[in-house]
Structures are given as structure tokens and as C-alpha cells.
């Protein structure tokens, strides 16, 4: 598996290189281009994942409490956060129906995108994907705190410790260094009492989600959120209500937002275009420089 990924990456790099050379003018013309594309959804089957079935969530918020206790012990309180903040990596949001007597709970946390905009945006590779698990995490030891990841994230997940002198970026890491390491499962899924959260590989959970929808088409809208949205995410959702009404970004589409910027930036791959441009500019500049300098000496 590991060999395969590294070979894929070499191939990808080579593609990047060729595209950079050949496609730069095409990109300017606005043609679609997939330079820098990460493995597609089908390659991510073995990624660590969990499925949130909102029809089963009772809104008890054991998950947010457990997350806080495991990952931010020093901040731990039995807070029931209404939304994400630098003190809560996950939160349960409530979306009331028009009648106001019923509602839908949605768990919010990092979606762990397959082609994350935040990773693409980070200038210093502080935001990364763990190759084995597909987990998106931040390495504070290199992070410069520019917060471009927060601008880039279409789900508005990433948090920043605004009130600290030496702040960090805060986001869900799927308990990469905590519960996942010690118990092989994320803290939130570990404690969920209602079965709204189930843990597994992305492939398995995608199949399970589709099975549930097929079995109970009246209960669910026919969509697994995260299968393709924003290029696909590791965290999957099924719900009884349209996802547009549940706080998910509108007009995200099936492509990662990073595709737009990466195809434009492909002009710069391997610095070929800038170097060529440099020499094209150098010729007239050196000619005219002598002229201007000469005129000045005469004058």
C-alpha cells in the first residue's frame, strides 16, 4: 500500500511537471486542469473514517465532552458548545424545522477532506495529510500562524487561539495522537451512546450509509454527504433533511476548492515559466538600461 502511494506520487509529480510546461497557456485560457490532484475518492477506501447518522443522534453531546476531555484536558469542562471554537474541536448544532417542534442534530468537526484546501493553501507544509490514515492535521512546530488555511476551508472548521500570546491552530485530528493511538477509535465515536456515530474504513462506511438509505428511503434524503462533496471527505453524513439546510456550504460542488488555485499556480511549477520570463525581460532591460545610463551621462 505504501509503495503504491509513493509510486503514485512520483507519477503525480511528473504529471505536474509536464502540465506546468504544456498547460500554462491553456490554464490562462481558463481550461480545466487537474494539476496537483490528490488520489481520487476510490483510492481513499482504507482511510480512517466515521459515519454520522443524524437520524440517530439524540443531541446528548457526550461526543463533545469526550473530545474535550481527551484532547484538551487542561480546558476540560462539561461545556456544551453551540459551535466550534478554539476550545471545542467538535460541536453539535441544532437545526429546527419550520414548525420548531422537531429538529436535526449535526455534529461539526473537521471533515478530513481527500483533497483538502487547507493543506493546499499552507505555505510551509504545516497542514498535512497523514498518508496512512488520510487524517488532516497541523504541525505547530512549523506553522507560522498566517491563517490562510482558515480562509481556504470551505467548512469553516479551523480555529485559532486568538487570545493567546503564542497561539496555535486548533482542529480535529481524529484523536491521531490520543484516543486513536491508545484505543484505536476516536473519542467521540467511542462514547456515542445512540449509535449515531460508527467508526471504520471509508469504503465500509460508504457502503453502510448507502445500505441505510436504500433500506429506509423515506427516512433519509438520498445523499451521502462527503462521498463526493468538495472532492470527497473522510467523514460521512446521512440525514433526513436536505444538507443545504443543515449548515453545509452551498455551491461547494464535487471538486475541491484547491483545484482552482492549483490549476492557476501550475504556471509556476518547477519555476520554468518565471525563469523563461526573466530572460525574455532581461534582453530589453539590459539594452534600454545602457541607453538610459548613456543619456544620463551625456546630460
Amino acid at each position: 500500500m505504501k509503495d503504491k502511494t509513493s509510486k503514485n506520487q512520483v507519477l503525480l509529480k511528473r504529471q505536474d511537471f509536464l502540465k506546468g510546461m504544456v498547460a500554462a497557456p491553456l490554464v490562462i485560457a481558463g481550461l480545466p486542469n487537474s494539476a496537483g490532484a490528490k488520489p481520487s475518492a476510490s483510492d481513499a477506501g482504507n482511510n480512517v473514517s466515521y459515519l454520522f447518522d443524524s437520524t440517530k443522534c439524540i443531541g446528548c453531546r457526550s461526543c463533545t465532552s469526550a473530545c474535550n476531555q481527551i484532547n484538551d484536558a487542561e480546558l476540560f469542562s462539561h461545556d456544551r458548545p453551540l459551535d466550534l471554537s478554539e476550545r471545542s474541536r467538535t460541536a453539535i448544532r441544532v437545526f429546527l424545522d419550520d414548525t420548531k417542534d422537531k429538529g436535526t442534530f449535526i455534529k461539526r468537526q473537521c471533515m478530513h477532506c481527500l483533497h483538502p484546501a487547507c493543506v493546499s493553501a499552507c505555505p510551509v507544509k504545516a497542514m498535512r495529510i497523514d498518508e496512512k490514515t488520510g487524517i488532516v492535521y497541523n504541525d505547530p512546530s512549523v506553522c507560522i500562524g498566517c491563517r490562510y488555511c482558515m480562509v481556504a476551508c470551505p467548512f469553516d472548521i479551523i480555529q485559532f487561539e486568538w487570545d493567546k500570546k503564542f497561539p496555535k491552530i486548533i482542529k480535529c485530528t481524529m484523536c491521531k495522537e490520543t484516543n486513536l493511538k491508545t484505543r484505536g477509535i476516536t473519542a467521540c465515536v467511542d462514547v456515542c451512546p445512540s449509535g449515531a456515530l460508527i467508526f471504520g474504513t471509508r469504503k465500509k462506511l460508504l457502503a453502510e450509509a448507502k445500505k441505510r438509505i436504500k433500506k429506509n428511503p423515506k427516512k433519509y434524503v438520498p445523499k451521502v454527504y462527503g462521498e463526493k462533496d468538495g472532492g470527497g471527505t473522510n467523514i460521512l453524513y446521512i440525514a433526513g433533511k436536505d444538507f443545504d439546510e443543515l449548515g453545509f456550504p452551498k455551491n461547494l460542488g464535487d471538486e475541491s476548492p484547491a483545484v482552482i488555485t492549483e490549476s492557476i499556480q501550475a504556471i509556476y511549477s518547477w519555476f520554468i515559466a518565471p525563469v523563461v520570463a526573466f530572460f525574455l525581460l532581461f534582453i530589453p532591460v539590459s539594452k534600454n538600461f545602457k541607453k538610459v545610463a548613456g543619456e544620463e551621462n551625456e546630460g
Binding site: S120, A121, C122, V124, K125, I144, Y148, Q265
Partner: peptide, 25 residues
Amino acid sequence: DLGRWWNFYTLLLPWRWNTHSVLFE
């Protein structure tokens, strides 16, 4: 404006460069 300004030097280390990043450029 940089939150973690003391890490600014990492921008100068070529092995840290993320050439996909617009902000890097």
C-alpha cells in the same frame, strides 16, 4: 499579523515550501 511570527524563518527553508500554495508564492 502572523500568529506564530517566530516561525517565519521556515518560509525560507526550501524543503518546507509548498509550491501549490498561493500564499507561499
